[in-house]
Design a protein around this nucleic acid. Sequence first.
DNA 1: ACAGGATATGTACGAGCGTACATACCATAG
DNA 2: CTATGGTATGTACGCTCGTACATATCCTGT
Lengths: 191, 191
Amino acid sequence: MTDPAPPRSSVPRRPRRHDPGRRDRLIDAALTVIAERGVAATTHREIARVADVPLGSMTYHFTSLEEVLAEAFTRHADSVARVFDERLGAARDRDEATEAVIALVADDLLGSQHDLVLSVELYVAAARNPALRAVTQAWMARSRQALERHFDATTARELDALIEGLVLHSALSTDPMTSDQIRHAIHRFLH
Amino acid sequence: MTDPAPPRSSVPRRPRRHDPGRRDRLIDAALTVIAERGVAATTHREIARVADVPLGSMTYHFTSLEEVLAEAFTRHADSVARVFDERLGAARDRDEATEAVIALVADDLLGSQHDLVLSVELYVAAARNPALRAVTQAWMARSRQALERHFDATTARELDALIEGLVLHSALSTDPMTSDQIRHAIHRFLH
DNA sequence: ACAGGATATGTACGAGCGTACATACCATAG
DNA sequence: CTATGGTATGTACGCTCGTACATATCCTGT
């Protein structure tokens, strides 16, 4: 067929795309927006812009903005917890576990401003949102459990708090701690 | 035209009040709203509602919402820092300083869910807002300086991080640490 | 091949927001 | 006592937001 003139210029402006896995991409886009602009600036429209999809796609794949946030933060927590598990799972004795913790903080956590901001954003969001609080607590429990593979329960809890403090402190400071300073602090605590 | 009926029933509905110090009350109301609802839900209208003043009063006393937040967080940081100074200023030796830190965390910081939430809200807000970042850093510097009256610089920095972690960890957990657990963690770190 | 359900898209609506501003009131300086 | 400048109040405007929904398109099972 010839049909040279484009007759339907107004209704479907954007060429429809076949895009399986779009929902996953939207969750990743949400994490990008949260990290770069904050939860407060995370809107349907902004996520859609970043993912380059129309606004309507958001309301099709998610029933509410809260659902997007919950799925995004769950993905983030899983991702960080997996690194936690791997680092500590590879350690064979307490000394190696200590080194694993140091590497975890100095390399994995402080190495990524992206993940770091996401964690703090999650903390605050969890303070108001029960669903996100559940995500946070599951994450904390998993971290503590990983530490308890090598340390007693009391030490694990205290160490978890120290890690949290070192990360947060460095995240907000103009001069974040160096790897050697992190190592010094953790060695001091674990003797 | 006599116009005997009360002609000005509609314009000033609320009896005008003489209210010196209203600006201060508005800043306190802002802190209440931030603590109870979060920075994201802190609006001109909500602050005005809590302080029981008309909306127009906000725009008269502050040039922008950002100014309100900055003044509120500055007041909060000053208040916490003052307690920090007093606790550590009263200590005469290192042992007393250690006890002061324990009391600070267990009683002052963890004792008030209000202040605790405010601090975390400030952390996140500071990540996006340069003016608030300045407030946070001035506060951190003041805390560290207070600790350096009794501990060397390295210890002060590490201890500051540990305090931050203990507070945040307890703030978000369903079972916050007890005073004895706080004491144990801090003693362990300081030998 | 084709029916039908899943997916994709554009648009509209009502609500709440920050801010501007005209107006009204009042403590106080002179 | 009165003028005046600071303070108090109500309202309007333009904007962005979450969400709903009608419509369009395409993949898939039969």
